[in-house]
Amino acid sequence: MISRFSKAFLLIIFALFVIGSIALLHPPSRSYMDPWTGDFFGEGGVEKDLHVNQKPPSPPAKQDQSVHGGVIMAKLGNATAKAELGRATWKLLHTITLRYPESPTQDERDALNNYFHIFSRVYPCGECAAEFQKLLKKYPPQTSSRKAAALWLCYVHNQVNARLLKPEFDCANLDSTYDCGCGDSPVNSTPKSKQNSDPMDLELDPTRDRDTGVGMIRGGR
């Protein structure tokens, strides 16, 4: 007869065999229960299943949409504020183009081009911005060199002056009129003229001498 010890030993061996067989057929897995829904999360934990169930993040807006979008600002009804803003803005834009590199890289060209288009969206005068966007479509920014950028902006400036029935500005005097005092190379060699008034005041006639009223010879033609 088999002793009690032998029976217990055989029973333990059999139990271990059964447990081992189950382990081979069904490998252990970690599962987690959601206490609110009762759902189980499988191997990898809650984070993995939540990541799988989440919607993919929205792709960022394309650069073309943000650069070439519509006007953002509303109409500016204050005529005095509009005129002051215009004078300051033209001074900023002309100074930018007059400080632009002589031989820009492609990255620098893209930066200036994008700047003008973004500027046309966020300019505080909505109706002015809309007009500027029309000019950008008709006359795309020229960014190949400092001279090209400066003369392009001067041409666009004169298009605005013509629409507002203001006198045409002499593009040959850009470097003297908008000299920032930075000591950089000028666009042309025109000597700086004596000016006691604000050169950004577009109400003045730049084609005539401020003191005598005598018509000045137009250059660059």
Rank of each mutant, 00 (worst) to 15 (best):
L153E: 01
R30M: 06
S144E: 15
W36C: 02
W152H: 04
C182L: 13
P167G: 01
S103G: 00
L76N: 11
L165S: 13
G213Q: 05
M216A: 02
T190F: 10
A149K: 01
C154D: 02
W36I: 09
R221P: 05
W152I: 03
E43I: 02
V67T: 14
V71P: 02
Q159M: 12
Y32W: 15
D184V: 10
G77M: 05
P35V: 08
V71G: 03
T177R: 12
P101Q: 06
P59N: 03
E102W: 01
A149P: 04
G42S: 11
G77V: 04
G77N: 14
H157V: 01
V52G: 00
H51Y: 07
C128L: 03
D34M: 09
K91Q: 14
A172S: 15
S66F: 11
P199D: 06
L24V: 12
N173D: 07
Q159S: 05
P104S: 07
K82P: 00
A149G: 06
A23E: 07
T212S: 15
T95C: 09
P28V: 14
K134T: 14
H157K: 09
S66L: 15
G38L: 11
F116Q: 02
I96N: 02
P35A: 09
P199A: 03
M216H: 02
V156Q: 03
G220A: 12
A129E: 06
I118N: 10
A81K: 11
P28R: 15
P186N: 09
P59C: 04
H94I: 07
M73L: 08
K75P: 00
D64I: 10
Q159I: 02
P104G: 07
H68I: 00
A150G: 04
I13H: 09
P59D: 05
G45P: 01
Q195A: 05
E127A: 11
E168D: 12
D211K: 14
R163Q: 12
D170A: 12
A79W: 07
R163A: 15
L16E: 11
Q133N: 04
I2L: 14
A23H: 10
A88F: 06
L136M: 10
L92A: 11
K62R: 15
N113Q: 03
A61Q: 11
N113M: 00
A88N: 14
H117M: 01
L136E: 08
S29K: 15
S103D: 13
N113D: 15
N161G: 00
P141S: 03
E203D: 14
T190I: 10
R221A: 13
Y115A: 06
W90V: 02
D110F: 01
E203A: 14
K147A: 15
C180W: 02
W90S: 01
V18L: 15
V67E: 13
K134F: 03
G20I: 04
R218W: 08
L25F: 09
Y178M: 09
K91S: 12
R163W: 03
G220M: 10
L92N: 04
L10N: 12
P27N: 08
Q142H: 05
I72Y: 08
L50I: 15
H94T: 06
E203F: 07
G77Q: 07
Q142W: 00
Y32D: 12
S29W: 03
A162C: 01
T207P: 00
V187K: 02
N53Y: 03
L174K: 05
N158F: 07
S176T: 12
S185M: 08
A172E: 13
S176N: 08
